[in-house]
Design a binder for these strands. Structure first.
Length: 926
RNA sequence: GGGCGGCUAGCUCAGUUGGUUAGAGCGCCUGCCUUACAAGCAGGAUGUCGGGGGUUCGAGUCCCUCGCUGCCCACCA
């Protein structure tokens, strides 16, 4: 490859090629320890074992997933950080993988079966699971393939799947240990039942939605002593009348005087006619509804608890599809909502319906199927979560895990402190089957790592394995340990656990982040450190930092959703503008505390930025070729690791190197604080503003090969140009890896010393900044802008050079004289003279450092000029008044920091010059 | 019912512990095909920092209050 570049930047011509190259060359593989990684990748990064390790897990996308903007944001941020750490010389280990996603995947395959007019039940469990594996082999890699296209610098040799053998061993081990520790129990409790998925789900899988519902007020006939109707009624309120056949009591508050006379009496449950007791319980709220509540222990968690306190029976009235069962009498077989309607109709006919009130309540829906969750009594497996939560709380309280933004810590504590036991069993076929066996003889349960030969209770061999599988999040909660070989104590585990960072959206804070913290703190505490010493909580945590990013919304701030049809497919955006531009957009918009309103116009702008850099490279390569023709050759390979300048170098050289160095420092600080937006903005400003707009224009003077001149000076200028550009590419490369890889290889004519720019070192955070050069350049730029504005105001044709006059201090004059070539070229000035005074009526541009005018016959429009100056004067006078007021205020002088007072004094002195000058300029216009 | 954000230029957003003249990109206006780039160059205009009150020498920044808006959590039928 030579440094010939196509005239126009076309990301589609370069990105796929590099994406493939990075994967094929195993550039980002971190060779594992014996029992760790599957593949022995090229040891590119580990020639010298680095001191510091940067480890991070990719939040595993579902195998059923398609890439969306949220993923892309997540991966862009992670990739920027990983590449940055890697370029700082750390061993960067970013581990990718996918999640088997129990319910989602099972649903997907079941849908496929349905289209083939069959079902999982027709297939049977074993064949169905086989079928899911086939499905996974076929489609499961789609999302990771898309990731490759994003340039994610992960170690593909370490790719995991949560159902892999190693990870399954970890799952079994974790389950068995928790069981041994008495932290897993099985029992009949009210769970969130999804009638559509036909499985229990955990609390976090239920999404609550406010809705306008109805509150039915119903009359129950009271039964007094001797089982006789007293003729009185008790009215209760319910939102779910279909559960009435499951009523086992009516409860009132013991102190509620309205009901005192009914204590110890009963009522008739209207649907089935059963006589059920009136009980008293302080849980009942006197001011809600009528103060009397029906009790249905099999269908409501509160009622369940109350029922246990009062030893009431539990009547389940629905089957697993939420159709009424035999307990519902005449309503048997009906769907729950049909039953509700019919029951209400009948109650109304019998005169037992008092009224129907509008009522806003929140209804729980299944996160996956969107079906309404039915609280239902069912036998499930649970984790006793309190002991795990305690350690997880301590880990964050004690600062072993840091959240960014910090406020999420509060959300985390809030949740962790109000946590309920975790229902981990799912009535699915796809997932980690619970390692428990039921005895046909004694009905005891045997929990074991391997299939047991006999029942641990009665010794018989009549065992059947539990049919339930584990919640998907059980296995993903173990990932930080299991991907490094746990429960074996591997060298990888020693080396890479705890991971440094987790980057994710808040939507899986409870699902995944919290579970990893609980599991990590629980299990790893038992795992000694590499040196054999006991592990402390600080080193048991799964990661040291959590960075939580925003949600990506559409340009109108709407949440992207398939139903709204406003989903922006990142692949489309990439096709239009390139991966680099899309990445840069996300980085630039990723400011903390606010969601990202993704706007393609912005991406278009960053494609222009990429194009700008592309063209800067073309220009630079052109200069290299011209220089070679003039006998000046600067071989890229001979450049120092960072551009160096001395006092002898030109102002522009010293300035651009200083700007590069301060930009590098700024980028480092921004990335340390996860301020991707600031980092992106610093680089953008530097590359476009400083490098292209100013430096390249000045360099054209330094490298004017059309005339004779100082060869060494030209060689020096070319060296600086090349050095700064190459360093700037490295600075940009974590953000735009494709473009920079392409240009970097071209820079070395296709023969770079390393295989990738990603393996070079990042520009240092502590290179020298030349304040003097920066401030001198700022003055120069100020004058150039002023002269350009004068040219515009006077209507000087673009190409015409005009003479200019400047009045300034001797120091400023010296600076301007020394750089008159820059002034002449950039402001198109034919000749610059220094004057004591200006001709009457001359139009000036004024700054504290200088006054400037151009000499051009066509008069400046006095009306427009007066208007401008009058506005300017008003602003300055206002500022002056405020400055003088403050400086006359002793409280200010006494209390404000010296720097602030000095600064204001200096400014006041400037204003003292500027105000009369501006006033005089207005006068001069007469 | 609890809790957390946001409200700054036409639009999308920055604005560090209160400190001199509140910024950027896009858009807008004017002039330029100046051979790296028209996906460009140069110049310009644009703000009662949601309303009100308070603390302070000084408030976009801190406190109170009101308004609008978004989100999370929650077992009151």
């Amino acid at each position: 490859m030579s440094h010939e570049l196509a005239k126009a930047y076309d990301p589609s011509q370069i990105e796929d090629r590099w994406a493939q190259y990075w994967v094929d060359e195993h550039l980002f593989d971190v060779p594992g320890s014996a029992s760790g990684s599957k593949a022995a990748g090229a040891a590119t990064q580990a020639a010298v074992p680095p001191q510091k390790v940067f480890t991070m897990l990719l939040p595993p996308p579902n195998v059923t997933g398609r890439l969306h903007m949220g993923h892309m944001l997540n991966q862009t941020e992670m990739d920027i950080l990983t590449r940055w750490h890697r370029m700082r010389g750390e061993l960067a280990n970013w581990v990718p993988g996918t999640d088997h996603a129990g319910i989602a995947t099972q649903m997907m395959v079941e849908r496929q079966l349905a289209s083939e007019k069959t079902s999982r039940h027709a297939l049977g469990r074993e064949a169905f699971v086989d079928r899911v594996w086939q499905w996974r082999a076929h489609y499961g890699g789609a999302i990771l393939d898309q990731m490759k296209r994003l340039g994610a610098s992960v170690d593909w040799s370490r790719e995991y799947f949560t159902m892999d053998e190693g990870l399954s061993i970890a799952v079994k081990e974790a389950f068995v240990r928790l069981h041994e520790q008495g932290l897993i129990y099985r029992g009949a409790y009210i769970v969130n039942w999804c009638p559509s998925c036909q499985t229990a789900v955990s609390d976090v899988e239920v999404v609550h939605e406010e809705q306008q519902g109805k509150l039915y007020v119903i009359r129950y006939n009271v039964v007094g002593p001797g089982d006789r109707l007293t003729g009185e009624t008790i009215t209760i309120a319910t939102t779910r009348p279909e559960t009435m056949p499951g009523d086992v009591a009516v409860a009132v508050h013991p102190d509620d005087e309205r009901y005192t006379r009914f204590h110890l009496m009963s009522v008739v449950e209207p649907v089935t006619g059963r006589v059920i007791p009136i009980v008293t319980d302080t849980w009942v709220s006197r001011d809600f509804g009528t103060g009397a509540v029906k009790i249905t222990p099999a269908h409501d968690p509160n009622d369940f608890e109350l029922g246990k306190r009062h030893l009431l029976p539990q009547i389940n009235v629905m089957d697993e599809t939420a159709h009424m069962n035999a307990a519902a009498g005449a309503y048997t077989g009906l769907d729950r909502f049909v039953a509700r309607k019919q029951i209400i109709a009948e109650l109304e006919a019998r005169g037992l319906l008092v009224e129907i009130k509008e009522h806003t309540n929140s209804v729980g829906r299944c996160e996956r199927s969107r079906d309404i969750i039915e609280p239902r009594l069912s036998t499930q497996w649970f984790i006793k979560i309190q002991p795990l939560a305690e350690k997880a709380i301590a880990a964050v309280e004690e600062g072993h895990i840091r959240f960014t933004p910090d406020q999420y810590k509060k959300t985390y504590f809030e949740w962790m402190r109000n946590i309920h036991d975790w229902c981990i069993s799912r009535q699915l076929w796809w997932g980690h089957r619970i390692p428990a066996w039921h005895c046909d003889v004694c009905h005891g349960v045997t929990v074991a790592r391997e299939t047991p030969a006999q029942c641990s209770h009665c010794g018989t061999t009549e065992l059947k394995q539990e049919t339930d599988v584990l919640d998907t999040w059980f296995s993903s909660g173990l990932l930080p340990m299991s991907v490094f070989g746990w429960p074996q104590h591997t060298p990888d585990l020693d080396r890479f656990y705890p991971t440094q960072l987790l980057v994710t959206g808040f939507d899986i804070l409870f699902f995944w982040v919290a579970r990893m913290i609980m599991f990590g703190c629980h299990f790893m505490l038992d795992e000694p450190m590499a040196d054999g010493t006991p592990r402390r909580l600080a080193d048991a945590v799964p990661f040291r930092e959590v960075y939580i990013h925003a949600l990506v919304r559409d340009a109108d701030r709407q949440k992207m959703s398939k139903t709204k049809g406003n989903v922006i497919d990142p692949i489309d955006t990439i096709r239009k503008f390139g991966t680099d531009a899309t990445r840069f957009t996300l980085a630039a918009m990723a400011s903390p505390g606010t969601d990202i309103a993704f706007n393609e116009e912005r991406t278009e702008g960053y494609r222009a930025f990429a194009n700008k850099i592309w063209n800067a490279a073309r220009f630079l390569f052109m200069q290299v070729d011209r220089a070679a023709e003039a006998g000046i050759v600067v071989a890229p390979a001979t450049l120092p690791p960072a551009p160096v300048v001395t006092e002898q170098d030109t102002l522009d050289a010293r300035w651009i190197v200083s700007r590069l160095n301060s930009t590098a420092a700024n980028v480092h600080h921004a990335l340390e604080d996860y301020r991707f937006d600031e980092a992106a903005s610093f680089i953008y400003q530097f590359f476009w503003g400083d490098f292209c707009d100013w430096y390249l224009e000045i360099v054209k003077i330094r490298l004017d090969f059309t005339s004779d001149g100082d060869l060494e000076a030209r060689r020096s200028a070319l060296t600086t140009l090349l050095g700064v550009f190459e360093a700037a590419l490295r600075l940009l490369s974590p953000f735009m890896p494709f473009l920079t890889e392409e240009l970097w290889h071209a820079f070395y004519d296709g023969k770079p010393a390393l295989k990738s720019i990603a393996l070079t070192r990042y520009p240092s955070a502590v290179s020298p900044v030349d304040e003097a050069a920066e401030s001198a350049m700022t003055q120069l730029q100020g004058l150039i802008v002023a002269l350009r504005d004068l040219r515009r105001a006077a209507g000087v044709p673009e190409k015409e050079a005009v003479p200019a006059q400047v009045r300034s201090s001797e120091a400023t004059a010296a600076l301007l004289r020394a750089n008159s070539d820059i002034l002449e070229r950039l402001a198109r000035i034919s000749h610059l003279t220094f004057v004591e005074s200006f001709a009457d009526g001359a139009v000036l541009r004024t700054t504290p450092e200088f006054d400037a005018a151009i000499i051009f016959e066509k008069q400046i429009d006095p009306v427009a000029e007066r208007e401008r100056l009058t506005k300017e004067l008003a602003r300055l006078e206002k500022e002056q008044a405020s400055a003088e007021r403050q400086l006359g205020n002793e409280a200010f002088l006494g209390k404000a920091p010296v720097a602030v007072v000095d600064g204001l004094r200096k400014r006041a002195a400037e204003l003292q010059q500027l105000v009369p000058k501006t006033r005089a300029a207005i006068e001069g216009l007469r």
